[in-house]
């Protein structure tokens, strides 16, 4: 399941994804860091086109299930005004063995960054620099 949340997502844990046949759980946390491309970042503002984002996000999770034969996949993305250290995206993948779960988790975060209509604006520590909408680059950070 793919979800968008305006509220904190800090409480997300993998336990809810577990099933008796699962031997591996891989989770990913994307957090707001304090710098980007040489600039000191003060906070981020995320915006979403919710209907399409949920649709595209769900498609990515279904593709991951088919491609990597995993058992379960979940992704939640925060929107709104986030501070440094806040959790922006949480992904949990379960599978029988670890290899599929690692691969699927990376596939999901890469695909989310590429295809889900979510945007982020950087606010800088130096207030003389105008806040800017940033775009994901081809190479994955």
């Amino acid at each position: 399941m793919f979800e968008i949340s305006i509220d904190s997502i800090e409480e997300y844990k993998s336990k809810s994804l577990l099933t008796p046949d699962c031997g591996a759980v891989v989770t990913f946390e994307g957090r707001v860091r304090n710098h980007n491309e040489g600039q000191c970042v003060d906070s981020l503002e995320y915006e979403v086109y919710k209907t399409l984002a949920e649709k595209e996000g769900e498609k990515i999770l279904q593709n991951a299930k088919v491609k990597f034969h995993i058992i379960n996949a979940f992704c939640i993305h925060r929107i709104g005004h986030l501070q440094i250290g806040d959790l922006a995206v949480w992904i949990g993948v379960t599978s029988k063995h670890r290899r599929e779960a690692f691969k699927a988790c990376e596939f999901i975060i890469n695909s989310v960054k590429e295809a889900v209509p979510i945007w982020k604006k950087e606010n800088y520590c130096d207030k003389s620099i105008e806040s800017k909408w940033v775009y994901c680059q081809e190479d994955y950070h």
Partner: peptide
């Protein structure tokens, strides 16, 4: 109709 600027989730 929605025109979608380059996205930046994650």
């Amino acid at each position: 109709l929605v025109f979608i600027p380059p996205v930046a989730g994650g």
